[in-house]
Design a protein around this nucleic acid. Sequence first.
DNA 1: GTCTATAACGAGATAGAC
DNA 2: GTCTATCTCGTTATAGAC
Lengths: 245, 245
Amino acid sequence: MSTARGARARARIEVTAAIKDEARSQLAAGGAAKLSLRAVARELGMVSSALYRYFPSRDDLLTALIIDAYDSLGEAAESAHARVAGAAPRERWTAVCAAARRWALERPHEYALIYGSPVPGYTAPQATVPPAARVGLLLIGIVRDAYQGKGVARPRLPADLKPEAQRMTADLAPDLPPEVVTALVAAWAQLYGLISFELFGQFNRLVEDREAFFRHAADQLAHGVGLVFPQPTGTAAKGPSGSGS
Amino acid sequence: MSTARGARARARIEVTAAIKDEARSQLAAGGAAKLSLRAVARELGMVSSALYRYFPSRDDLLTALIIDAYDSLGEAAESAHARVAGAAPRERWTAVCAAARRWALERPHEYALIYGSPVPGYTAPQATVPPAARVGLLLIGIVRDAYQGKGVARPRLPADLKPEAQRMTADLAPDLPPEVVTALVAAWAQLYGLISFELFGQFNRLVEDREAFFRHAADQLAHGVGLVFPQPTGTAAKGPSGSGS
DNA sequence: GTCTATAACGAGATAGAC
DNA sequence: GTCTATCTCGTTATAGAC
């Protein structure tokens, strides 16, 4: 399996990786808007036209970086989830949220690439959709496990959201109640609101202990999707029982 | 009051406005990263050096645009709030949220400027802080009104968040309970998570009726900060009463 | 076939002399 | 303020090395 062909293929993989690595460090330096094929080539001691053997255009390089970022985030979330596979849904939820945050803090520029402002003049192709969905699917799976069989109380939907909620449910998780699927999508967006605010500086001089703040907020998100069960019949007060980590 | 000096001052204001307008349309075209004083000057029929009489540097122009954006958003939120001044806190909350979303949809590039990825090489000066706080202060005020006197049940804080929650409370709203202030800050970040996901394309092929979805999600956020009151003594089930608009 | 290098294009930004 | 020479950019065509 490793003849001359194999060596060539290996070299190709290595050069491709080197190009992406250099591109990533340029991303860190100047942002996605001024990612330049020529600069990448220059830094690698190559000539710009040689890059076109690996990426047919600058946008294709960008797409590869975006897909890599989504996959890296997805992998981090999935392996964090695997590490607490046996735990209760609520713990698995917060573990995935914390992993996403940690990934973002470690790779702020890749996070900005996928969850920050869109790159001007670039539109993401369909190929980015499946990698982008990985964390979301993980969260859906956690909620699905929690709802297995149990009929837990859930927020009521306003009438004008019913059709949309049913559409989303059919698309995402036909086995879950529409109220829950809607809450899940909202929680998913809100999770990244928390991460973005921390990463993009909105919490400066406002939130200091961001780790603890995030942990609590993510836990509250778990309430929203029904992962924290009120006593089904007991004296349920509004204040949910405990949030101690 | 309007001598030659007044006319000069007026002219200066007009030119300043023209520069910012042109800069905003360049923001829309190429993003904040490639905002260039030269291009602005060219489009205005001026010479680049002339711009420096109005903005000492590209960063100062950026700062002015950022402050304008925060102020414009704050004004939109405040006037929407004024329009429902007499309503219940829950309605005032959703009105402010909806106004923020509408503003963002109408000015996506200005929104990206203030809530998207940070501009590489630019750090916002302190002058941007007060305008950036306007919407947040509005939301705090709504919750403050709701809590006037009433002791409403609220989520419990984990022990490790207590010090941070007390610090935030002292900074933001010493008259509110720390649990509520914490929930408020989180809800504030989550609100922009919802808006950013819609605006930045994360809801593509996922959420279609975004208006209804957002309205519901914002209403759920109001629950999180305690704006929707469960019957204080009655048979409170987890499912909150009604969300019908 | 696979890769790299040379050269060139048209468009845009930049720097400095005038 | 104006003009010009010089840069960078993405991209393509072409030719030669392995």
